[in-house]
């Protein structure tokens, strides 16, 4: 009855081909359209021009990518820590959960467009407001995922733990926490895609440097090619972070791959 863990690398490459093809053909169509229609590069620059600008302005772009990355990582680290800590507190104290959960939901209804300028106003042009905004945006999906994940624990496993004489803490560590991991990774993947965008938006509202500032300046000087160059970088950042979480998930949830291939 032995079912070996399948190797997935080759399979994954083959599966990726349609996605790569569709992305490439979208760019090709765009390039052809720009060349055939003769549209002004001030309206719509061709992908080749965007690429050219990325190479030409690589120092500027890199210098401004670093602060965005810093804000993203610091904000994400903060929201991850807080989400984990809070989720554990909420799991052990249902009353606190009922008291605080509405506040977290309300925090998600605040429009970023309105909140961002206020946060910048209160905390200045440095890293702090960006970190806070990234944390605000990414925190909730992870918290909800963790809290729901704990609740998803198989009641029979909990009965079993109780019959073994496990303490509340032991049950949490051995049963509830591992049960929540698939949920957590679902939340993490959603959060990570918001993180870079939130950092750029926070910069857009007020900062000294960052991709948001590049976009703002390029827009004001009618340079859609540079706007798009910054957009490409922001997309790439998000993709890399997304891939990193997928890789982490694969390692942590190895047992699920096994299950998926029954």
């Amino acid at each position: 009855m032995q079912r070996p863990v399948p190797r997935q690398t080759g399979e994954g490459l083959v599966r990726g081909i349609p996605a790569v093809l569709s992305v490439v053909s979208a760019f090709v169509i765009w390039e052809i359209y720009v060349r055939v229609s003769g549209i002004s590069p001030l309206m719509l620059p061709a992908p080749s021009r965007v690429l050219e600008q990325m190479v030409q302005n690589r120092v500027l772009l890199w210098d401004n990518t670093v602060p965005t990355l810093k804000a993203t990582f610091a904000g994400f680290a903060m929201s991850l820590t807080v989400a984990f800590g809070l989720s554990i507190i909420l799991d052990f104290m249902p009353r606190v959960r009922r008291a605080l959960f509405p506040i977290f939901v309300v925090s998600q209804t605040l429009p970023l467009v309105a909140i961002a300028p206020l946060v910048v106003l209160w905390f200045g042009f440095d890293l702090t407001p960006k970190v806070l905004l990234v944390a605000l945006v990414t925190f909730f999906p992870m918290l909800v995922a963790l809290v729901d994940g704990y609740a998803s624990t198989d009641p029979e496993i909990e009965d079993l733990m109780r019959s073994m004489g496990a303490t509340r803490g032991q049950t949490f560590r051995a049963a509830r926490f591992p049960s929540a991991m698939p949920y957590f990774f679902a939340g993490l993947r959603i959060s990570i895609t918001y993180a870079v965008v939130a950092a750029i938006f926070a910069e857009y509202v007020g900062a000294r440097a960052g991709l948001g500032i590049v976009i703002l300046n390029a827009k004001n000087s009618f340079r859609p090619d540079i706007v798009l160059a910054a957009v490409v970088i922001s997309s790439l950042l998000t993709l890399v972070l997304f891939a990193a979480t997928a890789l982490l998930q694969r390692t942590v949830l190895r047992w699920r791959d096994v299950e998926g291939h029954r």
Partner: peptide
């Protein structure tokens, strides 16, 4: 003094 075996096996899938 009891060891309990539940109806379904309740093995932890991640262990």
């Amino acid at each position: 003094s009891f060891a309990f075996m539940p109806q379904r096996d309740a093995l932890m899938p991640w262990r």
